[in-house]
Amino acid sequence: MEAPTVDHELFWISGSPYAWRVQLALGYKGVPYASRRMDSARQENRSPAFIELNPRGKVPVLKTGNVALYESVAIIAFLDRAHPAVPLFGQTVKEHGHIWQRVSEFENYTRDMLDVEIVRPLLRGYAKDDPGAMRASAARVYDALGWMEQALSIAPYLAGNDITAADIVALPNIQMLRRVAVRPQAIEMALGLETLDAHLPALGAWLSRMEAMRGYDAAYPPHWRI
């Protein structure tokens, strides 16, 4: 049996939620690709060769032939047009608009709340500089995720009955939040985020469904397995 044709190269860093999104999309769609894992400790994403692909020096980058695409949501949209058999942006105009609405809601109103105010301080070691501010941010997390809990109380996925780009965009950032929520610093500061699934049961059930999706295990950040 012949090996599938590989048309894409994906440049990524383990633990980048934005690269993880694209890996999930590729895996869920069953699209083969050449994996180009970058070592951020060696600043490989700042090398002249990589800067030629993305002047911003960030992952992910998807290289297809002579074209290099960056920005995770743009890459997922490209993949959906290039490989439409497993649609991530719907099959009708109405579905398409609704999915983009959900993607935009997460990107504009939820992502930075999680990433900038909680995940980065805990990962980079400055969370304890202002525990009061961290606790205030942690309290706001539940408000920021409220629209997701409501949507998932009505349907199994963020935009309806099927996995879409909205779910794939949101999942890595939520998983990053869950990972840092159980760190000793987070527990010591009583952020209360380690019980996220219990406080938001519909979101917790969604996370379980997403962890069972096709391609999830292959895309899981390898350094998290250590």
Rank of each mutant, 00 (worst) to 15 (best):
H96G: 08
E71F: 09
W20S: 04
L88S: 02
P60M: 10
F50D: 03
G90M: 03
F78L: 05
A82K: 02
D39Q: 12
R36W: 05
A74G: 10
K29V: 00
T92P: 06
V61Y: 00
N54V: 05
R56I: 08
L88M: 05
N66A: 14
G27T: 00
P87G: 00
E52A: 15
Q23D: 06
K29C: 00
A82R: 04
P60H: 08
K63L: 13
R56N: 15
A77F: 09
A77Q: 15
H83C: 12
R21L: 05
N66W: 10
K63S: 08
A41H: 12
S35K: 05
R81L: 14
R36C: 07
V22K: 07
V86Q: 00
S35V: 02
H83Y: 15
F89C: 01
E71A: 09
D39P: 03
I75C: 06
P55D: 12
P84I: 06
S35D: 08
N54I: 06
L26C: 04
R21A: 04
V22H: 03
M38K: 09
R42Y: 11
I75Y: 10
K58C: 11
H98I: 13
Y28H: 14
A49V: 11
L26M: 01
A82G: 03
D39R: 15
V59D: 10
K29L: 01
P84H: 07
A82W: 01
A68M: 05
P32A: 03
E44Y: 04
A85E: 13
N66R: 12
S47F: 05
P60Q: 11
V86M: 01
H98E: 12
L53T: 06
V86I: 10
I75F: 08
S35H: 02
K63A: 12
Y33M: 02
R81D: 14
Q91K: 12
G90E: 05
L53C: 06
P32M: 02
A41M: 14
V93I: 13
E71V: 07
R42M: 13
P55N: 11
V86L: 00
R36M: 07
L24Q: 02
T64Y: 12
A19F: 03
L26V: 00
R37D: 11
A77N: 11
I99S: 07
Q23I: 10
A19C: 03
A68N: 03
I76Q: 06
P87A: 02
P48N: 05
R37T: 12
P55W: 10
A74S: 11
E95K: 00
M38Q: 09
G30N: 00
A25H: 06
N54M: 06
A41F: 14
L69D: 02
R37C: 15
E44C: 08
L88H: 02
Q23V: 10
